[in-house]
Write a protein that binds this DNA or RNA. Structure first.
Lengths: 106, 106
DNA sequence: AATATACGCAACCGATTGGTTTCTCAAAAT
DNA sequence: ATTTTGAGAAACCAATCGGTTGCGTATATT
């Protein structure tokens, strides 16, 4: 079980589920209504999302509400950070280059 | 071939490759030296990364240099945007709550 | 000209994935 | 008390994945 966030968000259905429950907590049946697959398939996706802690559950009677764990989403953001730094410095380098070119023109 | 970025970054080896070539363009052999697998395995990963345009190639003699396409990386950032908005508004709501509590204390 | 190197491609293999169907169980509704 | 409903668990299946080995080819080196 290699359950990590990157593997979890690799599936388009799971990304759609994430987007859905980001707005409000939902039950498996309610989620499944938005897709043309069985509830069991959705249930499996939810298990994967729960296992990597991207989603937390709250039982209420016989219904189980699934909520997005935003803090876990931040881990993706954290990973992106190193590249964001790169593309920002590259842009500033481009800026510098343009500035240099302009000043040379004068 | 469902080659999308999210599927591409799902594999830890591919994420490592991305991090490697983010610094500088590299050949398959040079990349493979950093892992304990065969060059062919790395080559396959590079093909996947190329197919979803996360990486571009530049032939130089018999060597092929692989470079990270930062613009494509931004697409992940773009997807995260919707959730970033959520977690920021939630924090500001928390801030508001704290401010309200403080003013009530007075 | 002959050999070595860098690389992509194809065939193959076991493990994993996403999906279905069937079953069970507990909570609600009748 | 019986039936309906919400949901996880298990068994199964085809497709895909990550890896290996072997091969072909173009560029360098000798």
């Amino acid at each position: 079980m290699r359950r990590d966030i990157f593997q979890a968000i690799a599936d388009p259905t799971r990304r759609a589920i994430i987007a859905l429950i980001a707005v409000q907590a939902m039950t498996p049946n309610a989620i499944a209504e938005n897709f043309q697959t069985t509830r069991q398939a959705i249930s499996k996706h939810l298990r994967i999302l729960t296992e990597c802690e991207l989603v937390i559950t709250k039982q209420q009677g016989r219904e189980i509400y699934y909520t997005l764990e935003l803090d876990k989403m931040k881990e993706i953001d954290k990973w992106l950070e190193q590249f964001r730094q790169l593309w920002e410095t590259r842009y500033s380098q481009l800026d510098e280059l343009l500035t240099t070119l302009k000043s040379k023109k004068k």
